[in-house]
């Protein structure tokens, strides 16, 4: 099994005025390809910071982070953007779809930044919308879709670049229980197809869908064990 993510002694501090706030304390995490991992913790535990660092939106204060073998320590903004585009598929709690773009156009967005031609973008996006079961909604605007459908569009957008890791932040947080469960079902299916998923949540019920649960509390990780 290939290692896709390796964090060694990752720390992250913020400065609140004079005061130093240590959000992550010497975190070690290793994720192999094909894993479905959930990062479980209450708010303020540092899980958002973990997500930002895993997603290369932020860089650690100290420690070593290898993503698909790339050391992200010395990368500049532009290089980080390329890494995000190629390696990470983001799924957010509130979907973050652009309201004026159709479902298809939303899914196409990351492919624009990957530099694909419009025909290739359309082809891949349609395929991905089909995969999440929304092939008949391609022209709909986000407002014309239900919450569950919107999250499916967001998942299609996250997966359309074939990223190394699907990184989901409270993916069911804005959904009712039933649609939330459907989204989790989709995650399980995707994982079954070999997709590596890291899901950040505070909900133990949701976290249980993952094969591996890692607790985060006060900036430190503790493994719950593989289910």
């Amino acid at each position: 099994m290939t290692e896709v993510l390796n964090m060694q002694n990752i720390s992250k501090s913020y400065y609140m005025g004079e005061e130093e706030l240590e959000v992550l304390r010497k975190v070690n995490l290793q994720v192999n390809s094909g894993e479905f991992l959930s990062l479980l913790g209450p708010s303020g535990s540092g899980k958002s910071t973990m997500m930002n660092i895993i997603g290369c939106l932020d860089i650690p204060s100290s420690g070593k982070y290898l993503l698909s073998g790339n050391d992200i320590e010395d990368l500049d903004e532009t290089e980080l953007a390329f890494i995000r585009n190629k390696e990470i598929g983001f799924v957010f709690q509130s979907f973050q779809l652009l309201p004026r773009l159709s479902a298809l156009q939303n899914v196409e967005l990351p492919l624009i930044y990957a530099g694909l031609s419009s025909t290739e973008r359309k082809e891949r996006s349609l395929k991905m919308l089909d995969r999440v079961g929304l092939v008949d909604k391609t022209k709909n605007l986000p407002t014309q879709l239900s919450g569950g459908q919107q999250q499916r569009v967001a998942i299609a957008r996250a997966l359309v670049t074939e990223p190394t890791i699907l990184l989901a932040d409270e993916p069911t947080g804005a959904l009712d229980q039933k649609t939330g469960a459907q989204v989790m079902e989709l995650f399980e299916e995707l994982n079954h197809d070999g997709r590596t998923i890291i899901m950040i949540t505070h909900d133990i019920g949701i976290a249980r869908h993952a094969k591996r649960v890692v607790n985060i509390l006060d900036g430190q990780l503790s493994e719950q064990g593989v289910q």
């Binding site: 953007a81 390329f82 983001f90 990957a114």
Partner: peptide, 9 residues
């Protein structure tokens, strides 16, 4: 969002 999806500065 665009930045998260890979838009460079």
């Amino acid at each position: 969002l665009r930045k998260a999806l890979g838009a460079t500065p």
